[in-house]
Every structure is written in C-alpha cells, then in structure tokens.
Amino acid sequence: MNSLLFFATTLLAVTLGFAFTGTQSRDYCIRISPDTAGQPVGFELIDTIRGEVWVTTDWTVEAYAAFSPGLTAPHWFKNEPRQGDAAKAIALRSPGCPHDGKFTYQTIYNRTFFHIADITRITGAGLTGGVRVESTVNEHHRLEFEINEVNVIRLEDGASYQGPIDQLPRSPDGQPLAAL
C-alpha cells in the first residue's frame, strides 16, 4: 500500500512539474502598462490548462517561428503572431484585475508576458493542429480606427457589415445596411 501511495505521489509531482514548465511566478494586477507603442507584433502563448492567453512583444518573427514549447510543456499552445487591424489598440487591463491600468505579468521561457485574455469557450476542432473554429474570450481593449479605414463588423446575431467605421449606411432605426 505504501509503495502505491509513493507511486501516486511521485506521478502527481512529475505531472505538475511538466504542467508548469517554462513559467515562473506571477505578478498580479500591478500598475505597469505593457509597451505597445507603435502597434508591435504580439506573440501569444495559450495556457490550455487554465485557458489563459499571454502575449509578449519580446521576440522577432523569425525567432518566434523557430520556437517550440517542447514536449515538457504540452499545455502551452503557440498561437499565430498578432498585429491589430485598428489604427490603435490599447490593452486596458488583464482579466481578473478590477481596474483599468493594472496587468498581470509572468516570465515564460525567459521572456516577460502579460495576461491579455481568458478563453471562456471554444467550439469546433479546438486547439489541435492550429485550428480554432470559434472562441469566446474575456479581454479588455480599446480599439481606435481612422475614419477612412474599412472594417468588418460582426454583430452578436452573426450578421456581418463592412465599411468605414463612421460612414456605414444605416436604416431609419440606426442599423447598418451594408451587409456582406
């Protein structure tokens, strides 16, 4: 019986060790805004155990393409590099922080990441093979667009509209008319 308990305890310790490989302690909800000046490319890692999305600008496109979380950290999913379509995108706060201007940071693979979003729902094929059909996330951003930028707007009912943000044709009740 003691050997079975020892085996189970060892297995749990090894599993937890693998689950958190590559990470160090977190700094929760501190008032240091991430450097996103000039719309840099964001490199995302998704913690598939916790459903958390972490982003850093501390990589080059080439170095990130060559990076792999490795077999000791199968819960880290390397997402595609991100660069916003908006003229300006500002992260307001990390999920779980009660006020704008507060962010949670973590060192992952010797780089400083901040917590940008929580995945609250995934439908479809999930994260396997880099395919994500649809996801719902909890994130806090402000997006600013130039008046002549063309954008696609998707409403909660699934309808899509395209046009400059301030010049979409509207019906008498104020709804956009330029359906895709």
Rank of each mutant, 00 (worst) to 15 (best):
G129V: 13
P172S: 07
K78D: 07
I153S: 05
A13E: 04
H140L: 05
N79Q: 12
G51D: 00
A179S: 06
V61E: 03
D166E: 14
I147K: 13
T48S: 13
G163S: 14
D58S: 03
S25W: 02
T48G: 04
Q106E: 10
H99C: 03
P40L: 09
H99L: 11
H140C: 14
G42F: 05
T112D: 05
A63L: 01
D35M: 12
F77A: 11
K102W: 04
V152I: 15
I90K: 11
T15L: 06
T104Y: 04
L127S: 09
V131A: 12
H75V: 13
L92E: 06
G84K: 01
A63E: 10
K102M: 06
A178N: 15
R82G: 04
L71E: 07
V14A: 12
K78A: 09
T123H: 03
L4W: 10
A37Y: 13
R93G: 02
V55C: 00
G174H: 05
Q175T: 07
V53Y: 00
E44C: 03
G129F: 14
L12I: 13
Q175V: 03
K78T: 09
W54Q: 00
R26T: 12
R154C: 08
P164A: 12
E62G: 03
T107S: 06
T120P: 06
